[in-house]
């Protein structure tokens, strides 16, 4: 089946891409690896007027060590390159996140920026156009109704990025470029609760870099999924902490694939900083998880299952942190 009608454009520089983006008359979709965008175009969920390829922009490919120990990653770097990059050797938790994505084939194409901007997923919207035609459009496709969760007044599609939780646990930031210059946004402030407009990136902006602060002392990453390879997650967890043994500081716990915005569990983490990583405190922290996650939906898996798997993953990740 052919892709929907569109113009294809591939400017040679970031500047030209931003100009074209700013001056475009219709809807523009940015194309990097294509593994998500082309998939959604096949399902006719995306029908852009213009497909703007940014995959080979030289400005998006660099990986460099910054003066303060941070690492800057080009948003256009392919996942399989980053997996084995020398500058990321000290970030095993992030590498686990990179390797958790789909299959080797997909990671040879997919980019870091593409994964962070992965469209949210829903079992209704992510079907073929013919399948959806039986029931009609939803919040994602122009109607004020959700067919997946009847009571929803906002799109509740899930964030399915495997890498976002790992980068959130490391407190990464992203750099967004437009013709007006650059702005840096903490990844923790990048996602929203609306499955349709699920990031704060404006239509005239391109994500150029990801800034990775100095690594935490310890990090755990787990992706829970039906099959080990080539599958979306039931849930992912990334947890990081400084300190050794039971002592810990700067704890960050992030759950992915359960909600529209990856869930950064601040209250749960606060329990641990106060009392350490002993069994009693981990138990107390796990007790906080369900409350802190807030409302969960039955999208893909039942809400009760989501709550149970969230608690199990937090317990497992914290135990892993303690043993590192």
């Amino acid at each position: 089946m052919l892709l929907p009608e569109h113009e294809f454009s591939k400017p040679a520089s970031l500047r030209d891409s931003l100009t074209e983006l700013a001056e475009a008359g219709g809807e523009v979709k940015l194309l990097a690896g294509g593994t998500d965008v082309v998939f959604n175009m096949r399902g006719r969920l995306f029908r852009p007027d213009v497909l703007l390829s940014i995959r080979d922009l030289p400005e998006l490919q660099e990986v460099e060590q910054l003066a303060d120990g941070a690492v800057s990653l080009g948003a256009g770097c392919r996942l399989s390159e980053l997996e084995r990059h020398a500058l990321l050797k000290g970030y095993p938790g992030l590498i686990a996140g990179l390797r958790a994505v789909a299959s080797r084939h997909v990671r040879n194409m997919a980019t870091l920026g593409g994964n962070l901007n992965l469209d949210t997923r829903c079992w209704y919207a992510n079907q073929t156009a013919e399948w959806r035609a039986a029931k009609g459009p939803c919040l994602k496709t122009g109607m004020e109704v959700c067919h997946a969760i009847k009571s929803a007044d906002i799109c509740v599609a899930l964030n399915a990025s495997d890498i976002a939780p790992a980068l959130l646990a490391l407190d990464a930031s992203v750099v967004l470029a437009s013709l007006n210059g650059e702005r840096t946004v903490k990844l923790a402030d990048y996602y929203t609760d609306d499955g349709v407009q699920h990031t704060v990136r404006r239509p005239d902006e391109i994500m150029t870099r990801v800034l990775l602060p100095k690594n935490s002392d310890r990090m755990a990453y787990i992706k829970e999924t039906a099959r080990k390879g080539n599958d979306f997650a039931y849930a992912t967890i990334a947890a990081s902490a400084d300190g050794h043994g039971n002592q810990c500081s700067r704890v960050r716990i992030v759950l992915g694939s359960l909600t529209t915005r990856p869930a950064l569990l601040l209250k749960t983490a606060a329990v641990l900083v106060e009392h350490g990583l002993d069994d009693t405190t981990i138990k107390a922290a796990v007790g906080e998880v369900r409350d802190e996650l807030g409302a969960l939906t039955n999208l893909y898996t039942p809400a009760a299952y989501k709550g149970r798997i969230a608690r199990a993953l937090v317990r497992e990740a914290l135990q892993q942190l303690r043993e590192q």
Partner: peptide
């Protein structure tokens, strides 16, 4: 849709990529 892999080809670096998930003009 990127699940089955039967469209796999090798790029100029000899890596496996999926020819179904990428516009030809790329």
């Amino acid at each position: 849709t990127g699940s089955c892999g039967v469209c796999t080809i090798n790029n100029d670096r000899g890596e496996a990529v999926l020819s179904c998930l990428t516009p030809a003009l790329e």
